[in-house]
């Protein structure tokens, strides 16, 4: 298990270096996904499979897909096709693939050896334990997090508003967007 921990930790560091050294946003995002998956494996090795699963589902799954989509949608020029071709050069996908391959091999090795329940130190934290803490003594914190998200949402919706007069916000939006572009 120690090997799994250090190997995925190393992958996380290398992939994060890839994120900050890449000039192309999409390539950087590929590395970011690998980095997040590596962190998920680190969580598993530390005995928190629930946190690891959440990391994969929420970050590597939902948020990253959103990121990639937005970045790709912003590139709406004529050179898109050439760019797409350039993005698929082996040099580009080789790095993330190798790093993901290492992670996959680690995962398979763990499963093959059959010590999925073992952790580097301490005991395994299950989803049940996390849930009973979150909705027991930490209940207030969960509710506060909800308030925080509400405030963030209201801030974003207010500052992101395109047209000013109240009431006609929905109808005037397309016009304003046209003006902006």
């Amino acid at each position: 298990m120690e090997i799994a921990f250090y190997l995925s930790g190393l992958v996380a560091v290398l992939a994060t270096l890839g994120v900050i050294t890449n000039t192309n946003p999409v390539h950087a995002l590929l590395y970011l996904i690998v980095s997040l998956i590596a962190v998920a494996l680190v969580f598993c090795a530390l005995g928190a499979p629930f946190a690891g699963a959440l990391e994969v589902i929420v970050y590597a799954g939902a948020i990253m897909v959103l990121f990639v989509f937005v970045v790709m949608m912003l590139n709406l020029s004529d050179t898109v096709e050439a760019q797409e071709r350039a993005w698929l050069k082996p040099r580009i996908w080789l790095g993330p693939s190798v790093l993901s391959g290492v992670l996959l091999l680690t995962l398979i090795a763990i499963l093959w050896l059959g010590d999925g329940g073992r952790v580097i130190e301490g005991e395994t934290l299950t989803a049940k334990a996390v849930g009973s803490i979150l909705f027991g003594p930490w209940l207030l914190v969960v509710e506060l997090a909800a308030m925080l998200l509400l405030a963030a949402l209201v801030t974003a919706s207010h500052v992101g508003r395109l047209s000013s007069p109240a009431g006609s916000a929905g109808r005037r939006e397309p016009d304003a967007r046209k003006e902006a572009s």
């Binding site: 930490w138 207030l140 914190v141 506060l144 997090a145 308030m147 925080l148 405030a151 963030a152 209201v154 801030t155 207010h158 500052v159």
Partner: peptide, 19 residues
């Protein structure tokens, strides 16, 4: 944990209020 969440809940709306 409450220190962090409280601080964020204090600052996050302030971004919106200032802007």
């Amino acid at each position: 944990a409450t220190l962090f969440l409280g601080l964020e809940l204090l600052s996050m709306p302030l971004y919106g209020m200032l802007a």
